[in-house]
Design a protein around this nucleic acid. Sequence first.
RNA 1: GCGAUCGUAGCUCAGUUGGUUAGAGCGCCGGUUUGUGGUACCGGAGGUCGGGGGUUCGAGACCCCUCGAUCGCCCCA
Length: 426
Amino acid sequence: MAKTKTPQAIRGTQDIFGAEAESFAFVVETFERVRKLYRFRRAEMPVFEKTEVFARSIGETTDIVSKEMYSFEDRGGESLTLRPEFTAGIARAYLTNGWQQHAPVKLATHGPLFRYERPQKGRYRQFHQIDAEIIGAAEPQADVELLAMADQVIRELGIEGVTLHLNTLGDGDSREAWRAALVEHFRSVKDELSEESQERLEKNPLRILDSKDRRDQRFVADAPKIDDFLTDEARGFFDAVTSGLDAAGVKWVRAESLVRGLDYYRHTAFEFIPDDGSAAADALGSQSTILGGGRYDGLIESLGGPATPAVGWAAGIERLAMLVGEKGEPNADVIVVVEDDDFMSQAFVALGLLRGDGLSAELMAAGSPRKRFDKASKAGPRAIVSLGGQGSLAAPVRSDDEALVNRVGDLLSRSTQFIQSSSPRT
RNA sequence: GCGAUCGUAGCUCAGUUGGUUAGAGCGCCGGUUUGUGGUACCGGAGGUCGGGGGUUCGAGACCCCUCGAUCGCCCCA
């Protein structure tokens, strides 16, 4: 038989296992716990949608839509796309399921997203996010509550050295006026900007503001500020958000040049970013944002729904997992060692008893019988039950934990399979 | 899409200016020792050196292509 080649995993996908998988699970479990504290309701959406769901809401000119989507035709010839983010799909679900009746709704979800990008540290083609959205709430209190939750998730994950960067993009009119002023400002010095920013000038002028290129930064300093274009209403909204955050004890800094990549953002925009020089910044490489979001009051309309205010955020699980440190896999409470294969069935009785009582238990019954105890011992369980070691039905329990020895001894004595020995200790 | 570095056993890596049958540690399997034990010793399995092509008497080493990884740019979580 010809040797079959093992297919490789798809570029930019990951197989997560062991300590890394524990960190990943820790992030998700923490999110689930905190989300219930804030009374966000769990939602599940499909991982793929009609392409137009994303194209229309995210913005045709954004990088995500113009070059990063995994799109394909199904057998009926319809263009479908693997979700590159949660918000658009949630908005669609909100409209097509009549969730409007629950408005305002607080929703939480998590799962895989797909973006066709060059993989690097903290960035994958299939990646995972936790996500929280409040749909149908126009009040700044919604922004405050959403951010308080984000802040608590990060704190409960034990992540340090990360700060909330906050900005406002104003309402639609403010944003447009500001954008026009920025274009004018940068166009006057176009030839002195970096090549990339010259392109951004046409496509996405707001992004010039956070360019890393020195040539751009001199002109960023005296660029028009959003604050000068804010309507009274937009300013009032932002003030309400910031004072709410202060009252809620959420630390934040103003980031005047923080803009978000997607077209649908209005008013509040924010990112949680590691502080310069912190361990977190180090661990993340060039990927800085671990959680980002904002208010998207226009999105639902772009999908054909009624004008509906909403705010949300998403955070990369992989990026968070890199910051929570190693979460080792816990050792077994008990390992049952079969030192003589004649005692195999007793081992299953013992395992059933132990697991039924809530103790994690593992069987060690393969390989050289004489080495099994050593292997069990090496695995570092809280206790070891040895079967057949003395050629008898006795099942000695080895542990430094006296209470556990007694508990295991009591459990085993429930079966006539075992003539309990006088629990010798080591 | 662009750039840099890198691909040798399951894992971490050696492998001299290209030169015989490609090595070590850990892990795994078996045996001996110990005999209430996490020890030590012996032995074994496992590699078409990422894949393909080329240069050469001879390539794991050099060249080209390709796939992948890592790290940046762009952008984002």
